[in-house]
């Protein structure tokens, strides 16, 4: 594994803060070792910027081994760059050639506010989980772990879905900026496992409604999410989410407390508090949601129709 040295040019998004309009800036980065990771290349570029008295490029990253889900930029139009099934931190400069011009942008989605340069606020993904992405089991109340046998293939399927790292690439690549793959991964994991079944209906309804309320779009079967997902979470999970959602809407008594689970907490924390000057603002609701709370019984039939179509289409696509 001999190493080469290459010179590249970055066309990188610079934005001072959320209020700034932002623009592309051209930065030449010379003497890049081809064994460097993309983030190590940015590190070295930043060293030079700092020494030159310029503001370094802000980008999110942490574990640098592809599991924490912190890093991610759109590189040449593709979230996490050209490598399949990999996060940005796992992209290496040997993928690029001397003289390449590389465009680097933050995740773009209505629900993700750009904080600075390549950093965005993915807090809305946490809010979706808070709406139901859990099993309600208090510490101490669990039965013996082997009391509920789970067939290996079910555990494996659940694990496939649970592999999601919450990076947001699926949202960034989706033409609708939908978080359906993210939501479906959690709904699937817990719907597959017996532990998650008691709350399955409530979970599917609340998480989808919260996703809508936070400004994410919906799924129109582009499959771009699956293509860029660094953990190869399959859109079969979206089909499963649709089944769960329809089942819940048609057969269960569960009501969606969408914003009830979400907005009051946000409003509460938006009130001025001495200790918390930077309280999160409540998300802007989109057309199909109401700020007070959405009960799906009215629109569920239309949605059901659309979802059944999507479900059939996806099921066909995934089985053929």
């Amino acid at each position: 594994m001999g190493s080469d040295t290459i010179n590249i040019t970055l066309k990188v998004w610079r934005q001072k803060n959320a209020a700034d309009k932002g623009r592309f800036e051209t930065i030449a980065v010379n003497d890049v070792d081809s064994h460097m990771s993309f983030l190590e290349m940015l590190d070295t570029a930043n060293e030079k910027l700092i020494l030159a008295g310029k503001d370094p490029i802000a980008f999110d990253n942490d574990c640098r081994e592809g599991i924490c889900g912190t890093c991610g930029c759109v590189v040449d139009g593709i979230p996490h760059g050209p490598n399949k099934a990999m996060t940005l931190c796992q992209l290496h400069m040997r993928k690029f050639a001397d003289g390449d011009v590389i465009a680097v942008e933050p995740w773009r989605a209505r629900a993700f506010k750009v904080l600075k340069d390549l950093m965005v606020d993915r807090g809305p993904l946490d809010k979706i989980i808070q709406a139901g992405g859990y099993v309600s089991v208090n510490t101490g109340s669990a039965p013996d772990a082997n009391a509920i046998p789970i067939p290996m293939e079910v555990a494996e399927k659940a694990m496939d879905a649970a592999a999601c790292i919450g990076c947001g690439a699926c949202v960034a690549t989706c033409p609708n900026a939908s978080a359906m793959l993210f939501v479906s991964a959690k709904v699937s994991q817990l719907a597959l496992l017996p532990q998650g079944k008691p709350e399955a209906a409530q979970r599917a309804l609340s998480m989808v409604a919260t996703m809508d309320a936070l400004g994410f779009g919906n799924c129109t079967n582009h499959k771009a999410c699956e293509a860029v997902c660094p953990k190869e979470v399959s859109i079969v999970n979206i089909a499963r989410l649709n089944r769960e959602f329809i089942k819940a809407g048609v057969t269960s008594e569960a009501e969606v407390d969408l914003p009830l689970a979400l907005v009051p907490a946000a409003e509460k924390s938006a009130k001025p508090r001495a200790a918390s000057p930077e309280a999160p603002k409540p998300a802007k609701p989109v057309a199909q949601s109401t700020s007070g709370g959405m009960v799906l019984t009215g629109s569920i039939y239309i949605l059901t129709f659309l979802f059944v179509l999507g479900f059939i289409w996806q099921s066909l696509a995934s089985f053929l």
Binding site: T139, G140, P143, I148, M152, A155, E156
Partner: peptide
């Protein structure tokens, strides 16, 4: 031992044997 029980109840997809046991 309580930890394993707790995590399994939360839906942590631990590896299983064919019979469904951990």
């Amino acid at each position: 031992n309580n930890i394993i029980d707790q995590c399994a109840a939360q839906g942590v997809p631990f590896a299983r044997e064919y019979g469904g046991m951990l």
